[in-house]
């Protein structure tokens, strides 16, 4: 039981020749939060559909909890919760009715289901909507309901396809909080996303996929080191004066400064230690730091540098 998710040379061909996935081998360790990143049409959803038993690979293997998802889907899917792009609810059913079905098919007892429905709806902030028809739900509410569905049976692996797609900033923050909470509970999370800042914020490591092939797989910090630097955004109470900017540039640990209004994007080597030290130095320079957040950790630059130029027809 070394890896929660493991694929070996996974390939999926559509039509005669189009390879949506081309020999993808990836590993996700237990308890890890992994971002699955790539341009439109890279094959992220295809991978997730294979992992969740929706489609079969043309060749290769996929294991979830060491169970082969093709030959043993029942066991493989049991300990996994999934959120797949589309909403997929009947608008005339209530969350309670919908979740009851899923609880039953995961073999949960009725009283356990009722209790878990309460808990999960609480978790996704829909406690008052248990018996309301989902037809009136907003995109954000439907997404949160889908997340409640995914964790209802207490899976130890969670697979999320674009969990924040189409959500407003508040919705994005809420989902991010949930993912953090799942991680703190020891859950393994595999999520695909286009939002690199999102991935940098919540993920331990990243797998870059392009044209059906894995380009890189590394920890978020490791990617920062590959780019040679990572970035952190420091926002100040007032725009900095030229001398103040000069002082920033004089700090050895800071490799580059990029000012925009009152925010400075600082490049550094990507280690948490350096980041902490920089913050201490900023404060000691008597600069009023309003916020200090790792932004993208160089992911964007890395992304641009490794992804092929033509982004496909999608």
């Amino acid at each position: 039981m070394e890896y929660a998710i493991r694929t070996e040379n996974l390939s999926k061909t559509y039509g005669k020749t189009f390879k949506a996935l081309d020999s993808v081998s990836l590993q996700v360790s237990r308890g890890e939060v992994v971002g699955y990143v790539g341009p439109n049409g890279a094959g992220k959803t295809t991978t997730i559909k294979i992992l969740t038993g929706l489609i079969r690979p043309t060749s290769g293997r996929a294991h979830v909890n060491d169970r082969d998802v093709v030959s043993n889907p029942r066991d493989a899917l049991r300990s996994m919760g999934a959120l797949i792009e589309v909403p997929g609810v009947y608008d005339y059913l209530t969350p309670h009715e919908m979740l009851t079905y899923f609880g039953r098919v995961y073999g949960m007892r009725r009283d356990v289901i009722d209790q878990r429905i309460k808990e999960t709806l609480e978790l996704v902030r829909l406690p008052d909507w248990e018996h309301k028809k989902t037809g009136a739900f907003s995109t954000g509410m439907l997404r949160r309901l889908a997340i409640a569905k995914a964790v209802l049976h207490r899976p130890d692996i969670l697979i999320l396809d674009e969990p924040v797609l189409g959500l407003d900033p508040k919705g994005i923050m809420e989902v991010r909080e949930m993912i953090r909470q799942f991680r703190s509970e020891g859950m393994t999370v595999f999520l695909s996303s286009h939002l690199l800042s999102e991935v940098a914020e919540v993920c331990d490591s990243v797998i870059f996929l392009d044209k059906g092939k894995v380009v890189t797989s590394d920890s978020v910090e490791g990617i920062g080191r590959r780019v040679g630097h990572a970035v952190v955004d420091a926002r100040f109470l007032h725009p900095l004066s030229p001398e103040e900017i000069g002082k920033l540039k004089d700090i050895d640990l800071i490799k580059g400064v990029d000012m925009k209004n009152s925010t400075a994007r600082l490049q550094y080597d990507g280690t948490p230690e350096t980041s902490a030290q920089i913050l201490r130095l900023l404060v000691s320079l008597n600069l009023d730091v309003v916020s200090y957040a790792a932004e993208g950790v160089g992911l964007e630059e890395y992304y641009v540098s490794v992804m092929s130029d033509e982004k496909g027809v999608n």
Binding site: G53, P73, R74, L77, I84, G88, V89, Y90, F102
Partner: peptide, 14 residues
């Protein structure tokens, strides 16, 4: 089309 079926298939139900 609505994704309801995907949700049903992506469970241990055969």
């Amino acid at each position: 089309d609505s994704g309801v079926l995907s949700k049903m298939v992506a469970t241990p139900v055969n």
